[in-house]
Amino acid sequence: MKNKNRLYNLIFSVFSIAIIVALWAIVALVVKNEYVVPTVSDTLSATFKLFTESAFYVALGLTLLRTVIAVVISFAIAFIMAILSQVFPLVKKLFSPLISIIRIVPTMAVLLVILLWTNPTIAPVVVAVLVMLPMIYSQFITAFNGIDEGIINAAKVFNLTKRQRIFKVYLPQVALPIVSQTGSNFSFCIKLIISAEVMAYTFRSIGGLMTTANVFFEIPRLMGLTLISVIIGLLIEMIFNFITKKCFKWNNAEVKND
């Protein structure tokens, strides 16, 4: 039954991608202007050509590195802030307006200001951290508050030691929603980093390659870079979904009836 569902999901996914590609081909045929809508074949050809260029691999590597750095920094700061908020409710109240402000500030405006203070290599990371931080902080707070009160009562009644409560009960339950959202956090961060790289014209980056392709009207190349970014984002999400399933087997099975 499980394998049948997987097969159906795969068929529907392939079918919906095929529809998108078909629509794209039709639009390209109708528009007949490769500078507006390049054909599927031109885009795929430009995409495959990217994989023959060493500059592409350098750009990809550095963009991914910036993404990892941004996620790690956001994660670390958000975790510390969330722990402090849980332990000291007053701290949570102090953080609340700060988080709201960071969330609301227009991202690109922040980028332009940060470019004045730093450089195009660092600026995308700073911008990504500022956008990711409130998101990941909220995810931590939700995860901490999501621990079932019944579980907390059971830990209390059965005299679990502090160490047992933290490592055997609370941490695994907090870790599950955090890890399961890390995949989508990563793919969102890639999107942010690339957007910021485009605006900052970061040297040796996917965003920088996109800007160059745009300037020289290499639209199939630009589409190819976009396609690769999308695929990388999806792959990262799939990897984290797989990790979540493997590391949190206790959450996987369906409830059976008596």
Binding site: D148, G150, N153, F158, Q164, K168, Q173, L176, W250, N251
Partner: peptide, 24 residues
């Protein structure tokens, strides 16, 4: 000192049945 059988079982979901029972 009380032991408690709750209305909803409140088992620790990330532990096997054996590990849940070994805690007590």
């Amino acid at each position: 000192k009380c032991s408690y059988v709750f209305q909803t079982p409140n088992l620790f979901p990330n532990l096997t049945v054996l590990d849940n029972l070994k805690l007590v």
